[in-house]
Computed example of a mutant assay.
Amino acid sequence: MRTEIPTVDLKEWQSHGPGRRDDETAAAVDTALRETGMFLLTGHDVPRASGEEFREAGLSFFRLPRETKLRYEIQGQYDNGWREVHRNVGIPDAAVNGADTAPDLHESIYVGPTHRTGDAHFDGLFYPANRWPEELPQLQAAADAYTAHMVRVAEQVNGLFADLLGLPRDFFNSRARKATWTQNVSWYPSLSRLGQVGTGRMRNAPHTDLGTFTLLNRQPGKGGLEVWNEVDGWFPPAYPQDSDTLIVILGDLMELWTDGRWRALRHRVPAPGADAAEDEQVSLVFFFEADPQALIEPLAAPVGGGRGLEPAVAGESILGKLGVPLTPA
């Protein structure tokens, strides 16, 4: 029997004060985060039209000639701009043969916040500039509108996490005033467009995300998200494909912060089978992190999981896993 992934109505959750929330929902979400690392989110007031405009603008960019897109190519592991069909930049799953070497079957365009501190080196590391294509001014407009909603929802999800753990509601948000985040539009082309691909190639190889959590706005289709836990192994979580439901994916920083009480979601996106060679999808993926200088100190038991994980500085943890040096060469 597959693990049930609970759904939280964010508007309903926020309408009740502490101590008056649905204990059954809270317990179900806590269990899902302990065992798998995800839940579904409704009631977030993100207009469907905003997501669709951003998705369509991203797809328009991907349809540009490769020579044009190369002008906006990212220049490093933690950067903004276009990335061609590429290796996943999360934490690869070493248990899967070749997972960290075979390029994933998707391309992406990345954007991030415009925070600035005045320290050029620091800002270059943690708040890299966006590369907006001159050919598509609508892309920046659509991205700005959509990511404003994502930042709002991320702050509300941080409050929900604090509620679940019995912490002050601003516990996580107080450490995310100028949080790093990355929003991408990822295009999974059809197999008929890609042509022959090797056995075992994936749209997105098994990995965990680097930040505190991810908000995924996905489309219906074949070869969609699969997740892993110790009870079920790999399985496709139930998802209402005709709705505006977001998927909340826990990342490495939150597993560290809760000292292992909650787990970063191990997930992947397989390629569709030959019977779905025309299937393609465009996903909107918002990776939320924390202030780059925030010290992530594992919460003590019984709130934390008691694994004895070592504290880490948020930005250093993320860049370190990506192999990005913190000091100039």
Rank of each mutant, 00 (worst) to 15 (best):
residue 271 A to G: 12
residue 328 P to N: 06
residue 48 R to V: 14
residue 4 E to G: 01
residue 269 V to P: 04
residue 296 I to K: 11
residue 107 E to R: 01
residue 13 W to E: 09
residue 12 E to Q: 13
residue 143 A to R: 12
residue 159 G to D: 05
residue 33 L to G: 03
residue 291 D to R: 09
residue 166 G to A: 14
residue 195 G to H: 06
residue 134 E to K: 06
residue 97 N to E: 15
residue 79 D to G: 01
residue 162 A to D: 05
residue 74 I to M: 14
residue 243 S to K: 07
residue 325 P to A: 13
residue 159 G to A: 11
residue 188 Y to D: 06
residue 123 D to R: 07
residue 169 R to T: 13
residue 198 G to N: 14
residue 240 P to T: 11
residue 43 G to W: 06
residue 99 A to W: 11
residue 235 F to S: 10
residue 173 N to G: 14
residue 227 V to G: 05
residue 127 Y to I: 01
residue 78 Y to S: 00
residue 247 I to R: 08
residue 216 L to G: 07
residue 125 L to G: 02
residue 41 L to Q: 02
residue 209 D to T: 04
residue 321 K to Y: 09
residue 277 A to W: 10
residue 42 T to N: 12
residue 161 F to P: 00
residue 268 R to D: 02
residue 97 N to Y: 13
residue 58 G to F: 10
residue 237 P to W: 14
residue 154 A to D: 00
residue 187 W to M: 09
residue 103 P to T: 06
residue 197 V to S: 06
residue 129 A to E: 08
residue 169 R to Y: 08
residue 111 V to N: 03
residue 198 G to F: 00
residue 31 T to K: 15
residue 296 I to D: 06
residue 90 G to Q: 01
residue 70 L to G: 00
residue 29 V to E: 05
residue 58 G to P: 14
residue 21 R to V: 03
residue 196 Q to S: 14
residue 54 F to Y: 15
residue 214 T to R: 01
residue 27 A to I: 03
residue 167 L to E: 11
residue 299 L to N: 05
residue 138 Q to V: 10
residue 232 D to K: 08
residue 223 G to I: 05
residue 6 P to C: 03
residue 206 P to E: 01
residue 78 Y to C: 00
residue 52 E to F: 08
residue 190 S to Q: 12
residue 162 A to E: 06
residue 163 D to V: 08
residue 284 L to T: 02
residue 205 A to E: 02
residue 78 Y to Q: 00
residue 311 P to T: 08
residue 154 A to Q: 02
residue 197 V to Y: 07
residue 55 R to C: 07
residue 312 A to Q: 15
residue 43 G to C: 08
residue 186 S to T: 12
residue 307 R to Y: 06
residue 120 A to E: 14
residue 142 A to C: 12
residue 16 H to P: 02
residue 301 A to M: 12
residue 269 V to F: 04
residue 170 D to N: 14
residue 88 N to I: 03
residue 143 A to N: 03
residue 173 N to E: 10
residue 77 Q to A: 15
residue 222 K to F: 10
residue 262 W to T: 08
residue 163 D to A: 10
residue 1 M to Q: 06
residue 300 A to Y: 05
residue 324 V to E: 02
residue 311 P to R: 08
residue 308 G to R: 08
residue 81 G to A: 01
residue 300 A to G: 10
residue 1 M to P: 00
residue 255 E to F: 04
residue 248 V to M: 04
residue 173 N to W: 01
residue 293 Q to F: 11
residue 230 E to A: 15
